[in-house]
Nucleic acid binder design. Structure first.
Length: 438
RNA sequence: GGACGGGUGGGUGAGUGGCUAAAACCAGCAGACUGUAAAUCUGCCGCUCCUUGCGGGCUACGAAGGUUCGAAUCCUUCCCCGUCCA
């Protein structure tokens, strides 16, 4: 808390400082001098779903080129879960693009708004998060966000900074700037109303309070996923009500999850977490439907549209096997989060385990002490290879369990733990464990 | 405040006294087929015990009580949600 205020004060000390800083950067680092507007726009438009309104973004870019003042571009994220997944990185990557073009990237952590809960796309009121959860999540978020954004060039803000201080009077005034009918236009609310699902009044406040973020930040551009469009438009309108020009809006498509159907999300369990180990990440990418890989190329790699088109051409002409194209994709993404060597290793391991049907090179090992023989079922549960004994029994009956590379058929099998040995256990397609008895 | 409707497994949703650990679908898991693709097919899909059997026990249909040999199903009270009226 204390640290946060300190850093904010430094940032807040204003345009002057920022301008001075940029003057220095301009003379020392050519990458920070602005590129021609068309070039910037082309780069910024890559993969974007919608720019509202595009002429305004262009005009803003032109103005910043002329005055040398970078645009203030922000992305607000509510720290509702402790981990980011690939879906979150789509829009983060876009923020990075603005950063690459020399503009000011503001990463806004919605520590206050997370306690209200974004009603977007949900069919019921979310349980509000506690302060502790929000703080813990915010911390892990930042560490992950900086795998993509340049920490030195990112302005990190928390919306409790201003929302926490709003008086009841200020909130009433804020609310007076928007109409109920407009609010109920949004599909989430209408649907919930139609279907007889509850809507709590505080949920109506979400777009308004986050609009106050845009007012406080005096942003020129706000980024978000397409599903955020309604919120972003409210932000723009409210900014105008407060006498600001009204930010431009750039939305990014939703990343489809591993099932190839629905949006990537943790609750649907079709996600790839950005902190997942290289092997898991690699395997998950390989499991997406082939058609989906092109979207992934576009949204979660740094390939240019031309490069992607070429690759696609090669696959459709038969010059490149779709699986190889997907292997490249997987390696590229893994490399971005873990580095090239672990990515290479993950690729090799994938080959070995799934193509050549061998056990992986490094199987996680677990030691257990010598003791009386134990039921395999019990052991599977103790080693976290199965959630319950019933499930473990089922796995064996279904032929999913292997001991030293040969299938176990007897659900009542015991494992001899009376003398020091090693076992290679497999439960299902993905779970391997080396068991060391000593 | 009143009238009416509703709350079922991870989700949707059937079930109005025993044949219901609860239809169907989705999700998930396993096997087959593959490129760990996808699609498809087959099986599984609360926990637990053993003599692994269409076996026993326990827990479960918003909550708590009650009626009954027997309750998701009937009764009472409470909590929650919606619609309409005020």
């Amino acid at each position: 808390m204390r640290m946060r205020e300190g850093s904010q004060r430094r940032i807040c000390s204003g345009r002057l400082l920022r301008r001075a800083l940029f003057a220095i950067l301009d003379t020392t680092m050519t990458s920070n001098s602005f590129k021609p507007v068309d070039e910037q726009l082309a780069y910024l438009k890559k993969g974007a779903a919608e720019i509202i309104p595009e002429p305004e973004l262009r005009a803003a870019l032109e103005k910043s080129l002329k005055t040398g003042v970078p645009l203030r571009v922000y992305l607000g994220v509510d720290p509702t879960a402790p981990d980011l997944h690939l879906g979150h990185t789509v829009v983060l990557r876009k923020l990075k693009h603005f950063q690459d073009m020399g503009h000011t990237a503001v990463f806004l952590i919605g520590d206050f708004s997370a306690m209200i809960g974004d009603p977007t796309g949900v069919s019921e009121t979310r349980p509000p998060l506690t302060r502790e959860q929000v703080d813990a999540n915010a911390k892990t978020y930042l560490a992950q966000v900086f795998k993509i954004l340049d920490p030195a060039k990112t302005e990190v803000r928390y919306n409790s900074e201003w929302l926490g201080k709003l008086s009841a009077e200020a909130i009433v005034r804020l609310c007076s700037h928007y109409r109920l009918a407009r609010m109920l236009e949004r599909e989430d609310f209408r649907k919930r109303l139609d279907e007889g699902h509850p809507i709590s009044v505080h949920e109506l406040l979400y777009p308004l309070l986050t609009a106050y973020d845009a007012v406080s930040l005096k942003s020129d551009v706000e980024l978000g996923a397409t599903e955020q469009k309604f919120n972003l438009l409210v932000h723009r309108e409210i900014q105008r009500e407060y006498g600001l020009p009204g930010q431009a809006i750039l939305t990014m498509p939703i990343l489809v999850g591993l099932d190839g159907q629905r949006k990537m999300s943790k609750s649907l369990n079709n996600y790839i977490g950005i902190t997942e180990p290289p092997a898991d990440m690699f395997g998950k990418i390989m499991s997406i439907p082939d058609d989906l890989m092109w979207l992934y190329y576009e949204l979660v790699t740094d390939r240019t549209p031309q490069q992607i088109a070429t690759l696609k051409q090669e696959v459709s002409s038969g010059a490149l096997h779709p699986m190889d194209a997907k292997m490249r994709l997987a390696e590229e993404i893994v490399s971005g989060f873990h580095g090239p060597d672990p990515a290479r290793k993950a690729a090799d391991n994938f080959q070995r385990v799934f193509r050549d049907r061998q056990s992986p090179t490094d199987v996680p090992a677990q030691k257990i002490p010598v003791g009386p023989p134990k039921k395999l079922i019990v052991l599977l549960v103790e080693l976290n290879l199965a959630p319950s004994k019933s499930e473990a029994e089922r796995l064996i009956k279904q032929g999913a369990v292997e001991l030293n590379e040969s299938r176990v058929d007897d659900p009542r099998a015991d494992l001899d733990l009376t003398k020091p040995v090693q076992f290679l256990l497999r439960a299902g397609k993905k779970k391997f464990l080396r068991l060391i008895v000593e």
